[in-house]
Structure formats: C-alpha cells, structure tokens
Amino acid sequence: MGNIIVIIFGAIFINNFVLSRFLGLCPYFGVSKKVETSIGMGMAVTFVMTMASLVTWLLEWFVLVPNNLQYLRTIVFILVIAALVQFVEIVMRKVAPALYEALGIFLPLITTNCAVLGVAILNIQIGYNLFEALVFAVAAAAGFTLALVILAGIRERLELAFISRHFRGVALSLIIAGILSIAFMGFQGMM
C-alpha cells in the first residue's frame, strides 16, 4: 500500500510529467490559454492515458513478450494509442459537442502527445504490475492536469498585463513553467 502512495505522490509532484520529465509539452503550451479548456484537455488526457496504459500493458505481457517481439513495442503502442484517440474523438463529438468544439485541433494531437506514449513505455521499463501501471497513469495524468491548470490560471491574468513583445506567447510561458518547475522541485525533499 505504501508503494502505491509513493507512486501517486511521485507522479503528481516529484516527477511531474510536464515540469520534471518534460513529457506532453506541446499541449501544455498549446492549450493553456484558458482554465476551462485546460480542464477539458486534462480530462481527455487522463482518459486516454489510463486506457492506453491498460491496453499496452496487456499487449506487452500477453502478446509481445511471449513471442519475443519486444522490438515492435514502439510501433504497436503508437498504433494502439492512435486508434484509442480516434475512438475518444468519435465518442466526445456525440456526447459532449461543446467540449469537442473547445478542444478542437488538440484532440487528434493527443496521439502525438508524448505523455501518453511515455506513460505506456515507462510502465514497462519500470516494471509495474497492472494495478500499479493504472495508478501510475491516473496519477501522471493528474499531475499533467494540475500543471496545465496552474499555467492556464497564470496566463489568464497575464492577458491584462503589459509584456515586452519579444516575450509574448510561448517565450514567457516557458519562463513561467521554469518557475513552476522550481516550485515543484521543492517536493523532492519530501521523499
């Protein structure tokens, strides 16, 4: 049980996917203009990451390893993730059209969100069992969402501030992310 708490706390705060492992940066800077859309994006990523972890973990241990095909891991995982994203897109368009409109272009981009493929590969590399892998995926996605919502909150306020035109846009977001990352480094002392 202690192990599970370590995984959750570690994935959200200490090795935050965005701020410490550098995974999922494209959507991080792309969809962090508004808090509302960032929460939607976080939920979509959470769902895709958990599903992807489940499917890729099963594929790895019941298909690839027994057949000695681990070298096909990258190609198989990315195809599974691409198919999953398509599925989520279709469902979301039917069920929550408003959210679908808001997330727009970024939904297909989850396919190329390295956080999703990253969590699938990390699950295998660290050697988690299925339950640990699922916990890790949910916690990692929660960490991603947390970082995304914090950045979106700051950026909403910056809309009203005067900013040197050279720094407008991603340059300033990067520096804010750097400061957030320093704050998150403080959690390292807790383990």
Binding site: L19, S20, F22, S164, H166, F167, V170, A171, L172, S173, L174, I175, A177, G178, I179, S181, I182, M185
Partner: peptide
C-alpha cells in the same frame, strides 16, 4: 535541472 531548461529556452526564444 528541469527549471533551467524551461528558462533557458524561454530566454533564447525571446532573443
């Protein structure tokens, strides 16, 4: 460390 990566790239982008 990670924070330095963000800040360095941010400054370079501005430059």
């Amino acid at each position: 460390f990670p924070p330095g990566a963000f800040i360095a790239l941010g400054l370079m982008l501005a430059l």
